[in-house]
Design a protein around this nucleic acid. Structure first.
Lengths: 346, 346
DNA sequence: CCAGGGTGCTTAACCGATTGACCGTCCGAA
DNA sequence: TTCGGACGGTCAATCGGTTAAGCACCCTGG
């Protein structure tokens, strides 16, 4: 069976006009009569014509695709719903346009840089999305150097690149206030790596909120988002001197992992330990006790980022956009401080 | 700043030869001297040249991309690690080639068909991967009609399309034997929708294994992979007459959901109920008790499928490929039947 | 000395679409 | 009657590669 994907010259032949006329007709540009336009469009429809993206790219210089590189070990990826939700949101914004999503999953920062370079030089994408911004992120320099249209999923820390962000700061404050209202004073935050911009921002907000509320025993420790690291850290914290009565985790996986550790140590949740997860997910809903979590509008963020990127690609001004605010979803893993938890055990 | 992405004509100018010569040189074809070739390649390197994928596609007819449509509601997606693992495997096989992955996430079967049509007609992809095969799947007819190179992630039920599959049948048998060895006789399987080919295959294997081992009380009920449906079904089954002592779930989310239900009903796991999950994941590892699960080589399957697809695109013969076998990973959610569980409560 | 055959390169057509330049035809106005 | 536009097209260049065909040049053998 021969390839029967029609081209405009097939249409031109069928309509008895030149390919130029067909192009004008199909793109709704002046230069052809209404009669001819209708005839051409009917034929195109009948033949199931779809413009060759390669040909179009070549002549108008647009790839009609945007790129996303997910730089995270596959194992971790499977667990965390973050990227999947992000991608769902991206697709939502892309759904009825001609633009496609090019995805690369890698576990190597150099490969990520290389991907951007290849995509841009090979004209495969018109722009890219940058997730998980780090301090002094080399990707930022790269996209600047390349002149590659970019939208960054991060707080507006870069003046020249458009950022799409969620107000984590106030959410952190809200969580701390919520815990304090429940009577907690010894709160430990298990943060992600300090290299991430959002980690620093949350840390700063955490420290400030603690100071404002007069908590002297609030502190942060770092882990790498994995359940193993979280388990290690949690065990150390809970078996150390002056164990906290509440812990806040920077993702859902670590929180669930901590839940298991508490279970092993015979520490009842929430009676002697309250747990809050960052990023809500089915994971949080499904475990027992179900986890209190901060739900961020991740899909919305992806969609917003795409719209902004398409705008920038189209020549729009780069600007920062804030999404709707995170929401604290209280479930069964948080509760008032019990007398038992407050009294130092001996 | 002007666009500085170089083309072969930039290279040609710099090297003092024609673009044709440059093309021969860069593609390792005869027709240029070794000296010229080296000079051209050095210049290309220095300029950071990458071939324009559009131009290449246009002249050789290859898009250098493959497509994957994920047709699943975003909510569900976030939970199940299946697709993410699949994508990770796909990327692995794609990593050092020129081929990219085009991803579409949708929750609408018609949109999926439309995507294949558009991608193929628009020459955006050279081939596609089909996941979650259903009985009488309309996608199969479509790819046949289009002549679109395809690899199906399913048991080899289609003679003309290459399939990449995992031996679920023997895994089902293994699970049943394992449970029977622990003393279980009343086993309920909570399956996915019967429209999926793999559901039917597992169901058949389950029935056969039960018959072979003389279980009269083995039965299957259907759910839709969601935690809600699983909770509903599990509650009904566990509170009904002759509740099972073991349940096997078709994915991890449903198994975790059942764990929560058992917890609520005060049914200890594994003392009075054993639970087995299909598809291992961090979810299974992190909950307490940790779930016994059947681990399938999902990433391997994705990688194998890609290699097969690239082969088919390159003109290779379509053939069926079996991946390595699933593996039963025993954890704490399964155990011997207790006397308590066997005695009908009254 | 010349035919024959590699080398090593250039030329030009081609892939499928877009688009500026150009060109008949017809109509209305002067 | 003739000139000027508007209308409705065609033509050809262009995007960045690939590749068949052609063409100098040099070496070799007879």
């Amino acid at each position: 069976m021969r390839d029967k994907r029609p081209t405009i010259s097939d249409i031109a032949k069928a309509a008895g006009v030149s390919t130029g006329a067909v192009s004008y007709a199909l793109n709704g540009r002046p230069g052809v009569s209404e009669t001819t336009r209708r005839r051409v469009m009917d034929i195109a429809d009948r033949l199931g014509w779809v413009p060759s993206s390669a040909a179009r790219s070549l002549s108008d210089g647009r790839a009609n695709a945007i790129g996303l590189v997910v730089d995270r070990p596959a194992r971790e990826l499977g667990v965390e719903p973050f990227f999947v939700q992000l991608i769902a949101g991206i697709q939502d914004a892309l759904a009825d346009g001609p633009t496609a999503l090019l995805l690369q999953v890698t576990d190597d920062a150099t490969a990520e840089l290389e991907a951007y370079r290849r995509w841009w030089a090979g004209r495969r994408v018109d722009g890219v999305l940058l997730a998980d911004l780090r301090a002094d992120d080399p990707r930022v320099d790269l996209v600047r150097e390349l002149g590659l249209p970019t939208v960054v999923l991060a707080e507006p820390v870069l003046p020249d690149l458009p950022c799409v962000w969620t107000d984590d700061e106030s959410a952190v404050a809200e969580v701390v206030e919520y815990l304090v209202a429940l009577g907690h004073r010894r709160i430990v935050r298990v943060a992600g790596p300090d290299t991430f911009v959002h980690t620093r921002i949350r840390s700063k907000a955490f420290t400030e909120a603690a100071a404002r509320l007069g908590l002297r025993d609030a502190r942060a420790v770092h882990a790498d988002y994995s359940d193993e690291a979280a388990a290690r850290v949690t065990r150390r914290v809970l078996t150390g001197a002056e164990p906290p009565t509440a812990m806040v985790f920077d993702n859902d996986v670590m929180a669930v992992s901590a839940l298991a550790v508490a279970h092993e140590l015979g520490i009842p949740v929430p009676d002697r330990l309250s747990i809050v997860a960052w990023d809500d997910s089915a994971l949080c809903r499904l475990v027992r006790p179900a986890l209190t979590a901060v739900r961020r509008p991740i899909a919305e963020r992806g969609a917003t980022a795409v719209r902004l990127l398409l705008d920038v690609i189209g020549g729009g001004e780069p600007r920062h956009v804030k999404t709707s605010d995170p929401e604290l979803v209280p479930r069964s893993s948080t509760g008032p401080v019990s007398d038992q938890a407050l009294s130092p055990r001996r």
